[in-house]
């Protein structure tokens, strides 16, 4: 069997070698987890009519209602993400964008003059760059 041929190689490993190998793998995982986390947002910024209406931390779930010229736009916040839950606009683009999870992502409800964007983390790009 193929693993029979691995046996002499495994015999070269000493107890401390497994420790070192585990440490090396842990270092790979930790470095990937910390360095590739870029873009995790920590705050949602809601604008209405060009003015900042609210800045909300993405730490707990809540729903806020924002008044615009057409009516109420409901914005839903959950830990780490946010979306426009409902909007009185005719084409519903901002609602159909769904959950925003990346820092810099923006949903614009133009008819109702309301926008939702996520900030914080490493926001090198906004949605328009994609």
């Amino acid at each position: 069997m193929w693993y029979e041929r691995l046996r002499p190689w495994i015999g070269l490993m000493r107890p401390g070698d497994y420790l070192t190998l585990a440490f090396a793998l842990a270092l790979c995982l930790v470095s990937a987890a910390t360095l590739w986390r870029g873009g995790a947002p920590d705050k949602a910024v809601v604008r209405a009519g060009g003015q900042i209406f609210a800045e909300i931390g993405l730490d707990r779930a809540r729903i806020i209602e924002v008044p615009g010229p057409l009516g109420i736009t409901r914005i839903e916040i959950e830990p780490g993400r946010a979306r426009v839950a409902s909007d009185p606009g005719p084409r519903q683009y901002c609602v159909r964008q769904g959950w925003l999870t990346q820092s810099g992502a923006t949903a614009i409800c133009a008819p109702n003059e309301i926008s939702l964007s996520l900030t914080g983390g490493d926001s090198a790009y906004d949605s328009l760059h994609y």
């Binding site: 070269l12 070698d17 190998l21 090396a24 790979c28 470095s31 990937a32 360095l35 590739w36």
Partner: peptide, 28 residues
């Protein structure tokens, strides 16, 4: 540059392990 650290770390782990085993075999 540190963005590439996980890639380099993984390469170091894999090649470090293989080279170490080959060196151990040759030593024997």
């Amino acid at each position: 540059v540190f963005y590439l650290v996980p890639v380099f770390a993984l390469a170091a782990t894999v090649f470090g392990l293989v080279n170490g085993l080959v060196a151990g075999r040759l030593m024997r």
